[in-house]
Design a protein around this nucleic acid. Structure first.
Lengths: 136, 136
DNA sequence: ATCCTACGATGGACCGAGTCCAGGTCAAGA
DNA sequence: TCTTGACCTGGACTCGGTCCATCGTAGGAT
């Protein structure tokens, strides 16, 4: 997401200091942060940033397709800056660690027409679950 | 889930009227209800049943493997009485309708060893998203 | 059939994630 | 530099879910 800010400006985004730090936080670590974690990290750079702004900015980035929302558990949604390359997620049932993975083939292809019930199927989201090496 | 109550009793479950109605509600309609919807339907049969009891009973049924929990959106968890046959879900992005679907092949097989990072992968959960015929 | 007791039910307080809103602020074009 | 509408703020609010002290009862023991 190198020139993300440039792209966003080109799309008519008003680039504010708040939006800049949110983008920087996501850009910095390639992990899967919750909105709250983004808020904490953003606040380290810009003390007065509000929670609502972080939520708004994240939603906008998702709507623009620059960030993906992943909901691997029933808890807080996580934000994945790696929206460009299609990938799936491998989640540890013990500690919650999330890794990006690339299964072979297109998961959509596994769903035959007879199992589509007239739906226009757009995407397949796969969550692999198991235990990571340190949770054995 | 015909003789579910019998099986539960065999596992040391105390069969109360509350647990009975929750099981009946799930058994009745093969849809994917939220805890709250289960509560409403259960209350039609047993007016005084509490929300906490419905939540407890659902969690126990999930722990016993008799019901599956599905979290297709970031909102309320849904409970799927069809835990016996492995299947995946097709969700309408418009109205939220959920259908059970059976993709060909084992989705786990699509994840090569080199993409497992030492995890002991136990299951793959696939959510297909698209628009249903009435939401085109 | 009755008693006992541990397991289960209750409901109201509480919590965390997320949304909403009225009012104040400021990025960027003129 | 001015103007203005897009944006930010913080606090109230909603919704899904959990916790807990207390009361009730299923079902084994007698």
């Amino acid at each position: 997401m190198s020139d993300l800010l440039g792209r966003l400006r080109a799309r008519g985004w008003r680039v504010t200091s708040q939006r800049r730090v949110v983008v920087e936080v996501l850009d910095g670590d390639h992990v899967h942060l919750t909105a709250d974690e983004v808020h904490v990290r953003a606040a380290r750079r810009l003390a007065e940033i509000s929670r609502a702004t972080v939520y708004n900015t994240l939603s906008e980035l998702v709507a623009l397709g620059e960030v993906k929302e992943v909901a691997t558990d029933g808890r807080a949604r996580r934000y994945d800056p790696n929206a460009a390359r299609p990938h799936q997620h491998l989640v540890c049932s013990g500690c919650g660690t999330i890794r990006d993975v690339h299964p072979s083939g297109d998961p959509l292809a596994a769903l035959p027409d007879t199992e589509r019930f007239g739906f226009t199927v757009a995407e397949a989201e796969v969550t692999y679950r198991g235990l990571c090496p340190s949770c054995v």
